[in-house]
C-alpha cells in the first residue's frame, strides 16, 4: 500500500516545477503550460486526499472534475489573449520590453 506522503511529494514536485516555469520562463505559451502543470499537481493531491482520509467522500473527485472544466475555460481564454498580444506587439516574449504606441490626434 502506497502511503499518502508519496502522492503528496509527487504533487508538490509538480507544483514546484510549475512555479519554476512561472518564475523563470518568459515565453507566454510556456507560462500557460507551467500553469497547467501546477494544476495537474493540485488535482493529484485532491484525489489522493479524497481516497486516504478517514471517511470516503466524493468531494475530492467532484472538485477535480470542476477544476478540469474551469482549466479548459481559462486555457481557451489565455490562448486567445496570447494571440492578441502577439498581434499587437509582434512578440510573445515577456522579456522583450514593449513600448506603448502614441495615439495620434487625427
Amino acid at each position: 500500500m502506497i502511503p499518502l506522503s508519496w502522492y503528496l511529494a509527487l504533487a508538490f514536485m509538480l507544483i514546484g516545477l510549475g512555479a519554476y516555469g512561472m518564475m523563470v520562463k518568459r515565453n507566454l505559451i510556456r507560462i500557460i503550460i507551467s500553469a497547467e502543470i501546477m494544476g495537474n499537481g493540485v488535482m493529484i493531491a485532491l484525489v489522493a486526499f479524497s481516497l486516504y482520509l478517514d471517511t470516503f467522500t466524493f468531494t475530492g473527485q467532484g472538485l477535480v472534475i470542476l477544476i478540469i472544466s474551469v482549466a479548459a475555460a481559462h486555457t481557451a481564454l489565455a490562448m486567445v489573449l496570447m494571440l492578441m498580444y502577439h498581434r499587437r506587439y509582434q512578440t510573445i516574449d515577456l522579456g522583450v520590453p514593449v513600448v506603448q504606441e502614441e495615439i495620434s490626434d487625427e
Partner: peptide
C-alpha cells in the same frame, strides 16, 4: 527565480515529512 522555486519545493516538501499522513486506504 530558481532559488525561489526551490524554496517553494522545500517548503511544501516539509509539509510531507513533518506531519504524519495515513499510510493505508481506510475505507473500501
Amino acid at each position: 527565480g530558481i532559488v525561489l522555486s526551490i524554496f517553494v519545493i522545500i517548503l511544501s516538501g516539509s509539509l510531507v515529512f513533518l506531519f504524519t499522513w495515513p499510510t493505508e486506504i481506510p475505507a473500501v
